[in-house]
Design a protein around this nucleic acid. Sequence first.
DNA 1: TAAAAAAGTTAGTTATGACTAACAAATTAA
DNA 2: TTAATTTGTTAGTCATAACTAACTTTTTTA
Lengths: 227, 227
Amino acid sequence: MTNKLNLNNLTKSEEDYLKALFQLLVEGGSAKVGNNQLADYLKVSPASTNNMIKKLKAKKYVASEKYGKLELTEEGKSIAVRLIRKHRLWETFLCNYLNFSWDEVHEVAEQLEHIKSHKLINELDRFMDFPTKDPHGEVIPNADGEYSVLPKITLSSLEEGAVCQLVSVNDASVTFLKYVSEIGLALSSEIKVLEVREFDSSIKIQFNNIEETVTRKFADNVFVKVI
Amino acid sequence: MTNKLNLNNLTKSEEDYLKALFQLLVEGGSAKVGNNQLADYLKVSPASTNNMIKKLKAKKYVASEKYGKLELTEEGKSIAVRLIRKHRLWETFLCNYLNFSWDEVHEVAEQLEHIKSHKLINELDRFMDFPTKDPHGEVIPNADGEYSVLPKITLSSLEEGAVCQLVSVNDASVTFLKYVSEIGLALSSEIKVLEVREFDSSIKIQFNNIEETVTRKFADNVFVKVI
DNA sequence: TAAAAAAGTTAGTTATGACTAACAAATTAA
DNA sequence: TTAATTTGTTAGTCATAACTAACTTTTTTA
Ligand SMILES: [Mn+2]
Ligand SMILES: [Mn+2]
Ligand SMILES: [Mn+2]
Ligand SMILES: [Mn+2]
């Protein structure tokens, strides 16, 4: 029972790797995540991830056997969640107070999430009156690291005739987010799946009296709640 | 006339060295700054500064001859001023919106000043309605990098009987700033120099009907305007 | 002005975190 | 069940930015 108040002496890179693992394992819901998959996600070489994983295993943030799949320890998860909390709070601040649009915030938040100061992030939270969702509809973990990982149902997984509400979007692609806004979709939009085309998996949807055809790739990045 | 919109591909370290040089040369008013002095200021070895100075000379941010004194080019100064602008705007934000006290802001601002986003800092400036002074009384450069470097008159430089107003304080020491607040001094305080003691250069001052004796070291970090 | 001290430089080492190339193990397909 | 492919690992290299130790140049002091 020593380090409840965690020193957090991690480098920016170590933090990024833990966050990536968390996003693949927990938020992405992948049962198994391998070294190459992590390398792919982080856009670095497999040699780099292999090397970093060794370091994180030595520090007890990651657990895995040689040639086995990667897992996060409780401590590893805790660090990742705190990073995600910071990321989403900053995104919210940029959008709600500094006139950033939802496609502009992610890149800057990638930098801001590494600022080390408990007071900073908790005061920012208070200043915004404890927001629970970020500009992309993603849940913001609270100061104790608690938050609900909503099961991510993609628009692409729905059948013809389904009616749903847009809950959140993948925040990492600027062009995707601009596209979403441009066609008139937003958080809470009510969407009806009119047609799922077998040929190319494109989907015809309806919302706000608008009809649009979107690709499978687009629909994979839109998360919904069926109603 | 190529790079008006500067890419600013500098590392955190390169930025820190340029800022340190600026603070010694321009804000500190030293006519000459040498390699070892810079090393001292940054708390790194002379070998480290020597190495970094070479890099900054290659990039045309610093000019100097071998064994000669260090100088900043216009481009070097410009980068330093932008960094100082960011630092002071963040300090102001932390103090005025996030309940930080003036002794808590410097360390966090040292991290925040390296966040790369023109929009972020200019929107933060607008959000706070373009403040001109930071919590320590230091002048905040505007978006064009313009600002007045006030001649820094230290409290220690005054003679017996002088009356002055506290304009700014050195922001880098937490214990110093706490001490300043504790004895009841603040920005704009009117101070009278009652006595300068020859023995140990300690100074007896009066302000708000309070009399205090402070050391030379203390008075060196208090900047005033004679009235 | 010669010796001592201070200031500045260079060489070589370390840690972090990338990379490529080569290789080994595990999985998938034929 | 062998062969091909994918996945994972290792070795060696590079860049950044620190360090110590040894050395040289400049400045100061006697
Ligand atoms: Mn994001
Ligand atoms: Mn987001
Ligand atoms: Mn400061
Ligand atoms: Mn300040």
